[in-house]
Each structure stands twice: as structure tokens, then as C-alpha cells.
Design a protein around this nucleic acid. Structure first.
Lengths: 196, 196, 196, 196
DNA sequence: TATGAATGAGCCTTCATTCAT
DNA sequence: GATGAATGAAGGCTCATTCAT
């Protein structure tokens, strides 16, 4: 079970592409092998079994995401800036890895979750980051105090998630990253008027 | 291929239960037949094939949802009331049909073009309703004018969706419906302070 | 997992034939299915898996053998008669079921024993019967007293086993049953002269 | 395909150990390579294929056995002594090579024509030796004349074989060699009383 | 209508064997 | 000689679907 070799990456990349196209259950080892340009058996030198390919895909994706997200928030100074950076990073990450995006969005919501652990992890990262940002914002006076933070997290994550979903389902034809600005605006100001 | 008979309903209900438990791909016709108390072959008297069962499940679920949603908004007078009713209905529907909720949330995000049509439909319904509500709110002065309505829809749908997802993933142990009020509050007011 | 139906017997018989020809490990489900005149999948309606086919073959063979052996000894009056009947039955059983004989002899001696339980059972039956016979013979004065019965059992079983093995390996061309008489003679009198 | 080098012996010894543990069919080249401390590919420098390893194992074992058996009978003077030495040698050989013993006993009874030749050879050796001994014994008056020698051979070989089998199957915990004396006693005198 | 035994295509996985280094 | 990564044929098993009853 070698890792991090060229062939490992080659297979993982191919697998993500195939999963994105057909979904995990409908994908076959042979398809992945063909896409990767290796023999079926070769896959088993790098992965325990078919499930393991998905798990490792997720781990790679979530590892990358965690890094990106923490770095993103660090780059902002005010809470709003941090939030904007986070969402920008999130959208940018997915926009630049469309296959990964599809797999992630698809399998994440499945009940039968092979990939429970990496999802919990990335989810927790997101939650932690948002908590921090909200905290900071409240201290800085930019975010109001009487908030149910757990719900704020779901609001933000859910909205971004849905924006990505829509992007995927409409053929990924529009610019995803440009949604960051208006999204943050909605989060901060809401849809109501001042007197609402 | 008879429809709407007792047995049809019986099978569909059983299927949703099984899909909720194992996910569509991991469910077998035999399991559904057993859960429904019929023979494997009987299922093919009511459904074209396994895929068709999922499609019909979705159609039933989305039909019910459409009805509920339109009725819900009709019951409110102001835009905010209507929005609140919509979200309340959404959460209530899922809370009272946990099996359906799981299937819907799980399979909806799959790439599978299988269930694309009913999903587009319910999605469009949602979009239409939200458009109407926003329109009304803008006329009534409760909702601000400079909004990208397409994004507002995704904000609302995404947030509710995520709240439901979380509810499912935490064992459905808390009250979902009670999230309506704070959700609407967030939508309208945002998380920022007045001067933000 | 239906049992004792026609198809069950059909598959079991076919399997024994194939196992006899190629050995268990070299036999494939497809070969068995073809020999039985059924589809591959049909086998799994009657057997849990490939191993199970062998196990059930053994169970059927050992059940039959037990019956035969107990009945055989019951038919004799003196210890020597009983012994003769036992060996006669043993040889007759195998002579009339050549495929079963081959499978039994082959797999019984394997170290990796899927079929441990039925073998222990038939082995114990044999041991019990021989013990009884020796006991009786000693009381009747036909069998000498200073015997290590455990060894006598192995002497008898081993010799018969080897006679059957030879019969199989020489193409089953001679009459196996006729070996009963001289075998018993050797057991009782040994190869030595009186004064030995 | 070099022979008789250190590595050749190393692999053969490892193979016998692995075969003894799992049985030939369940053993893999990788396991043997690992046990031998060489690479998988190295095995193919010394053996034609997997089957060849088993064949050569047998040849080595049977060669050694032949030597031992001929020497053993040569050391006895009377027929009974020779018989005793033969059996003692047989039991001693297996007791001192438990892995070889297991493989030999296991695979010998398989139908597999693979190892037919070495088995026939050792079997013939045994037969020849027993014939000689019986001949001698008859001339010396220690063995009776009216014997079917072919059957005597199977009696002796079968009994010893079964004693070894039992030894293996009971965990090799008792002393095998000490069985030689009582076995010979049974062969010579039988189990009957003088007047039987 | 309803049944469920039977089918067989298809997939994951193993492993003997090869060959470039 | 030695290695071990790579191969791909082969086989056990599942399960959607059919059809005779």
C-alpha cells in the first residue's frame, strides 16, 4: 500500500474524475484503471479496496480545504474581511477542482457514509472558523451579540453549499468566486430593510 | 403498471424506508419487497425498474411538498409572515417524514440525472415562491430592493437544507420546526449590527 | 437456502463429480453449475458459498456412512462377524459411490480442513464401533486382552483407507468388496506364524 | 533454474513450512517469498512455477525417505527386525520433519496428478521393501506363507500412515516413534487369540 | 394479479507470472 | 543474479429482472 507516489496520485485523480461522472456506486474499478492508464490490479497496490479510494479522495480534499480555510481567515483583519476570505477560498477551491467539487457535494450528503470521518473533520473546521470569526466580530462590534452561533454556522455553510450545488447543476458555467461578495453582504445585512 | 393502489403505496413506503436506511445503491429489490410484505416480482407490476422506484418516491415527495409550500405562503399576509410559513412548512414536512427526509437529502445531492426532473421541479417551486415573497416584501417595504434574488433563494434554501441535514446527522433528536423563527430572523436581519 | 429439493440434490451430485475430477480448490462454481445444468447464480439459492458445497457433501456422505456402519455391525453376531460386516460395508459404500469416495479420501487428509466437523464425527463413529467390537471380542475370547485399542482402531481404519486409496489410484478396476475377507483375516491373525 | 544452491534450499524449506500451514492451494508465492526472505520474482529463478515447488518438495522428501528406508531394513537381521526398523525409520523421519510430514500426508491423498510420480516412487519403494521382508520372513519361518503380499503392504503402510495422521491431527503432542513396537506386534500377531 | 425460483451479466478482488531496472 | 511493481486473467458472488405457475 504505497502512498504519495506518482501512480498513487494518478489513480486518485482518475478516480475522482470517474466518481464525479458516474457517482461512486456506479463507478467500476475497471473504469478508474482505464482512466488512470493502469491495470485493474495495480489499483490494489495503492488502495485497500474500492471504498478506500473514496475515503482517500475525501481525505485529500478535506486536508487541502482545511489548510486553505485557515490560511484564508488569517489573511483578513476585520471579522467581515475574514468571512469574506473564507467564503472566497471555499468557492475558489471548488471552482478550481470541479471534479473534486462534484464528488464532495455528492457523497457528503449521502446517508451511507463511508467518509464520515473526513466530513466530520472538515465540518468541524468550518464550525470552528466561523465561531472564531463571529466571536471576533462581536468584540469588534460588527456582528450582533444575540446570535445562536450554531445556526449562523449552518446558515453560512448551507448557503455556500447551495451556491456550489447550483453551480454544479447548471453546468459550472458561471463564475463561482464572484458570489463571495454578495453572499457576505447577505449574511451581514440580511434581506430586510433597516426598519424591518 | 398500476398506480395509486394500496400495494403501490405500500411498496413506495417500504422503499423509502429502506432507501433511508441503506441508501439507494445499497438497497435491494428483495429488501424492499420484504419490507413491503410482497414478493420480489410483484414490485415489477407497479414499477418499471429499481430506478423507477426512486423516481416515483421523489415525485410523491415533491408533489406533497409543492402543495404544502403553496398553501403555506398563502396563509401569511406580510412577506415576512409568508416566508416564515414557508420555512415552517418545510421543516415540519421533513420532521414528520423522517424517512422521506433522509432519502430526499441524500439522493438530491447526487449527480445522478435520475431524479433530476423532480428535483428541478421542487427547486423551481421554491424559487418561484421565494421570488413572489421577495417581490411582495419589496413592494411592502420590508425587503430591500437591491437584491440578487437568485442568490437569496439559494441562501434561504441552502440554510434550511443545512439545518435539516444537521438534524438528520445528529439523530433527529431536537425539534426542527422551532428553527423556523430564528432562521427567518437571520434571513431578514442578517448577522451584522445596524451600522455594520 | 432451500434444502432437499431436487435441485439441491442435483447440484450436490454434480459438485461431488467435479470435486472428484479436479479437487475442490481447482473446481469452479461455473463448472459445477454446468455439470448440474443450472445457472451459476442458482447454486447460491441452495448453498451459502463454495465452501458450503463441500461441507454439505461431506455431511451427506458421513451421515450415510454412519447409518450403514451401525447397521452393518448390528447384523453380525460374533465380534469377528461384526468386524467383517463393518469393513464390508465400508468398502461397499465407497465402491458404489466412486465420486464420493474420491472426494472423501482427497479432502479428508488435507490439513486445511473446511470439513473438520463431519470428519471428526465419522471418525468418532468408527472409533466407537471398533471399540465395541473389540470389547465384545475380548469377552467372547476371540480377541486378545492386552491391546492398545486406540492403536487397533488406527490399524483397521488405516488399512481399509489405504486399500481404498489404492483402488482409486489404480483406476478403480478391481473389486473392492472382496478385500474385506482377507483384510479381516490379517487383522485377526496377523502376518506371523503361530510360533512367531 | 539453478538447483541445490543455498537459496534453492531456503525457498524449498520456506515453501514446505507455508504449505504445511495453509495447504498448497491456499499458499501464495508472496507468502513463500516472505518466509524465505527473498523477492517474489526470485522464486522463478529456481522454480518453473508454483506447482514445481510442490513437486520438488515431494521429490526431496521422497528421496530422503527412500534412502532412510533402505538403510533401515539393511540394519535388521531377521524379518521382524527389519520390519521394525522400517517402521521406526518411517515414524522417526516424520517426527523430525513435522512440516514435511504435514505436507506429505495432506497432498499425497489429493487426486492431483501433480505429485503422482514421486508418490508412486516412494510407494513402490515401500512395496519393494515390504515384499523383500515378507519373503525373507517366509523363508525364515517367521511369516506365514499364504499371504496376499499386496494386501500386507497396504495393511502396513496404511496403518503407519494413519498413525502419523492421527499424530498430526492431535497436535503432534505424543511420541510417534514409540508406536513402532506395538505396531509391529499387531502386524505379526494380529488382534486375535491363538485359537481365534 | 401475485409469486419466487431461476437466470446470467457484471463487478470486485486475488495472485501467479513477467520484466525493466 | 535479485528485485518488486505491474499486469490481467480468472473466479466467487450479487442482484436486477424475467416468467412459468
Amino acid at each position: 500500500m504505497k502512498r504519495k507516489t506518482d501512480k498513487y496520485e494518478q489513480i486518485l485523480t482518475a478516480a475522482i474524475r470517474v466518481f464525479a461522472d458516474k457517482g461512486f456506486s456506479q463507478s467500476t474499478i475497471s473504469q478508474i484503471a482505464q482512466e488512470a492508464g493502469v491495470a485493474d490490479g495495480t489499483i490494489y497496490l495503492y488502495f485497500k479496496n474500492k471504498d478506500d479510494i473514496l475515503v482517500q479522495s475525501y481525505e485529500r480534499m478535506t486536508d487541502r480545504a482545511s489548510d486553505r480555510f485557515w490560511k484564508a481567515v488569517a489573511e483578513g483583519h476585520t471579522a467581515v474581511e475574514k468571512l469574506h476570505h473564507l467564503i472566497h477560498a471555499h468557492l475558489d477551491l471548488f471552482q478550481n477542482d470541479p471534479f473534486g467539487a462534484v464528488v464532495f457535494q455528492s457523497e457528503t450528503h449521502l446517508q451511507w457514509r463511508l467518509v464520515h470521518e473526513p466530513i466530520s473533520r472538515i465540518s468541524k473546521t468550518y464550525r470552528d472558523i466561523v465561531s472564531q470569526v463571529v466571536d471576533l466580530g462581536q468584540k469588534q462590534g460588527a456582528i450582533r451579540n444575540n446570535l445562536y452561533v450554531g445556526l449562523v454556522k449552518r446558515l453560512i455553510f448551507g448557503a455556500v453549499d447551495e451556491v456550489i450545488d447550483t453551480w454544479i447543476n447548471t453546468g459550472m458555467d458561471h463564475d463561482l468566486v464572484s458570489m463571495a461578495e454578495p453572499l457576505v453582504d447577505l449574511f451581514i445585512k440580511g434581506i430586510g430593510t433597516a426598519q424591518g
